[in-house]
């Protein structure tokens, strides 16, 4: 009965070493949020005109940090989707990356506004730890005819995916 154990221990050590990179916990974190109030000051030209249809956040409204990579060649991808609490189907929300952040690796993609749906879609990709990746938001669809008085909430959710 001791032989299988003696055989398994070196094998398991090898497996453990082989899987070590996976144990580096690839992680994504965010800072910032966007709270927007739309009122009469957002009418195109006062009474008799509609709301300005598009609202855009500051270019540094949100920030993303990616940590836990095994090094500057450890590739990853960030997917984005929205999780609605209260949202109007006439709204379209967009996100884009406005900064590269800092880090030893690389980053690419996501620099043009892309509509965020309730299904994950690739946002940007890169390698290595990156911090301070700025993002900007834009919402289209404001109109007094279609958007009732209310408070609308959604979460722009990013998922980091380890890639080969």
């Amino acid at each position: 009965m001791k032989r299988p154990v003696a055989f398994a221990l070196p094998l398991l050590t090898l497996v453990f070493c082989w899987t070590q990179p996976a144990f580096a916990v690839l992680s994504i974190a965010t800072t910032g949020s966007w709270s927007l109030t739309v009122d009469a000051t957002d009418l195109v030209a006062g009474a008799g005109t509609d709301l300005v249809s598009t609202q855009t956040s500051s270019s540094t409204q949100g920030s993303i940090d990616i940590t836990g990579t095994t090094g500057s060649t450890d590739n990853w991808r960030v997917d984005v989707k929205r999780v609605d609490t209260t949202w109007d189907s006439d709204f379209t929300i967009y996100v884009r990356r406005t900064g590269d952040g800092t880090g030893t690796g690389t980053i690419s993609g996501g620099t043009t506004f892309q509509a965020v749906t309730t299904t994950d879609a690739t946002f940007f990709s890169g390698a290595g730890d990156r911090s301070g990746i700025d993002v900007e938001f834009k919402i289209e669809g404001f109109s007094v005819s279609t958007i009732p008085v209310d408070i609308y909430d959604t979460s722009i959710t990013y998922t980091i995916v380890d890639t080969p």
């Binding site: 609202q55 993002v135 909430d153």
Partner: peptide, 13 residues
């Protein structure tokens, strides 16, 4: 080895 984080967006009309 995947995790998520989010930015909250609130619009008050």
């Amino acid at each position: 080895a995947a995790s998520s984080a989010s930015h909250d967006v609130t619009v008050t009309v």
